[in-house]
Design a protein around this nucleic acid. Sequence first.
DNA 1: CGACGGGGAAACCGATCGGTGTATTTGCGT
DNA 2: ACGCAAATACACCGATCGGTTTCCCCGTCG
Lengths: 191, 191
Amino acid sequence: MATTTDKASSRDRLLDAAARLSYRDGVGIGIEALCREAGVSKRSMYQLFDSKDAMLAASLERRIPRYEARLAHPDPDHATPRERIRHVFEQVTGAAADPDYRGCPYLAVLVELKDPEHPASVVARAVKQRLTDSFRAEAERGGARDPELLARQLVLVFDGASARAGARVEHLEDGLAVTTATALMDAAGMD
Amino acid sequence: MATTTDKASSRDRLLDAAARLSYRDGVGIGIEALCREAGVSKRSMYQLFDSKDAMLAASLERRIPRYEARLAHPDPDHATPRERIRHVFEQVTGAAADPDYRGCPYLAVLVELKDPEHPASVVARAVKQRLTDSFRAEAERGGARDPELLARQLVLVFDGASARAGARVEHLEDGLAVTTATALMDAAGMD
DNA sequence: CGACGGGGAAACCGATCGGTGTATTTGCGT
DNA sequence: ACGCAAATACACCGATCGGTTTCCCCGTCG
């Protein structure tokens, strides 16, 4: 069934190109350039997606597993809640060392698309919510006094760090993000 | 000298319109719409500014005094360093209550214009640097153990809070930003 | 071999982009 | 009242926007 395979491949190439180009150049990237990059005709892409907005949302959604896997601790069973949280901020720090790093793509989309109802904004907000939930779960396991508060504080730092590093106004290379997260965990009375 | 006055007025109207529209709709806003909003012909605006980029940078620069005045404590002489820092985060919290709040305009520009060399990015980065400097000065006055570290931590929280509030993914109305800043000041051993 | 159908290339749509050229109007100083 | 400069309106430039349509090629199956 070569037909099905080709279709799926086109779809994937489109979504990958959309993720890559919109991350590098912003959501204002043109459909023409996207299709050129993906090697797919504009006509085919409009058979696969209803609109540019829908494709953008789909491309963000597709990256979620990879994104969250990167933030997850490689050995969750033998790590403490502190270590798992710490790992998240170490990953941001590491990613920021790449000169092509532009910050968390989901936050960037939320900032660029001022419309919170945009399909891509909905996806991005969901990702942020899941990060908050994950922080809160770790905070609870770690015995924080106010897990909800600590989780929201950590996301504040996470987004501040990724936005500033992506905007090249902060480098993070001395571990600023990790240090700040640690200070907040300490203040929250976590193990 | 009515001529000079009119010119200044056109210039000001242009810069105000640029600041307002680019904040609401992003830096991708069109020149046509800008000039329509300002009541100035496109031809006149290109005599006042070399390019759209230059006008955008100028409009950001023009708002700096207003922006920094808002963050400055109303009675600096009778306020402690802690109170002056706290005031900054209270202002963000208050601003976020406005449904039209879209976060710190300077951070938004840095995120939207991925190019750090863009004239507007240069202006925005300078504003961020001044905020960091101001935090560090307060941290020193307040006897923080590591004023530079605390200042960078506070800006992380500031940008995270403003970005998330502007993206409508965090409301801040329960004082999250103030609480977080306070926790970091405590951890830094400030008075 | 021939009919069919999906996908690609590219023209096309009206709109807008940043920027310019031009001709006209406006309003000022003398 | 006149002249002059500035500001205006507006057409225009090539390029691109998101999106649609046409045409044609090429592979598959009967």
